[in-house]
Amino acid sequence: MAKKLDINAAAPKQKFWNLKRKENMNGYLFILPWLLGAAMLFIFPIYRSLEMSFSNIINYTDYTIEFVGLTHYKTALTGDTEYLNSLFNNIKNMLQTVPFVNVFSLLIAVMLNRKFKGRTLFRAIFFLPVILGSGFAMGQLMNQGVDKEAMETVKEVLLPRQVAIYLGEELTNAISVFLNLISTIMWKCGVPIVIYLAGLQGVPSSLYEAARVDAATEWEMFWLITLPMITPMMLLNMVFTVVDSFTDSQNWLLRLIERTSFSGDYEYEYAAAMAWIFFVWIIVLVAVIFLVMRPFINKVKDN
């Protein structure tokens, strides 16, 4: 690159506006509009919410604050059963869905990676929830319980009452729980599927050819070639699903946080503390995922 050349070494006098500085200047000019917007309407508000979580708002017109230390954090972690309950439920939910989402999306990605007719259409449909999931219309429907209605009718089709009677109550319940789970999970699979697909397409085909020469079965090839080769995508997807479940607007905890800040007592400071506790937990979880996955990923690189 031109700018890497050390032009200043040759020149006897250094000008202030040397080439390097000029180029940096250009770069900053380019990034400035975005940075300005992000700093003002994105980074600064996050910082403000951290500040407020340690304080009490004393004046609601200009939001002057008074430092109160860890009070809100103490209340949230020791006294507030509603918060603790939803926090634990959320953690439980997350630990359940993350592995399921990963297994399902890997399975679907493996299927979509085969060549068959209508593959593009199927891919588009699996990605659709990502577009619709954040939608206002969908939110309205979910609030009215329409998704549950839809599920009920699907169940009727897949498992008619006449059949259900033969299977017995317990088995029917188990099946309906399973069906509910699938639909929840399928709606979170959009992005992970695409990431896995990209990973699968990056596996060199020579590896499979070599394995086929050695008479390996499809099953063996999956476990010994595909799976080790896509561990980086697995890591990416784990982190993605964890973060996604945190920022998902259907999240119970976020609803609680919103309710605390905007209705009733307008305890925004307390809501901010709630959010930060959750945020720290997410960061810890992501760090743990990194630490656990790291040895596997390095192993692939060595081979």
Binding site: M52, T247, S249, N251, L254, F279, I282, V286
Partner: peptide, 12 residues
């Protein structure tokens, strides 16, 4: 910042 939900910063 990607990991931070927007709902939380409404007031600031």
């Amino acid at each position: 910042a990607l990991m931070f939900p927007g709902e939380v910063t409404t007031i600031p």
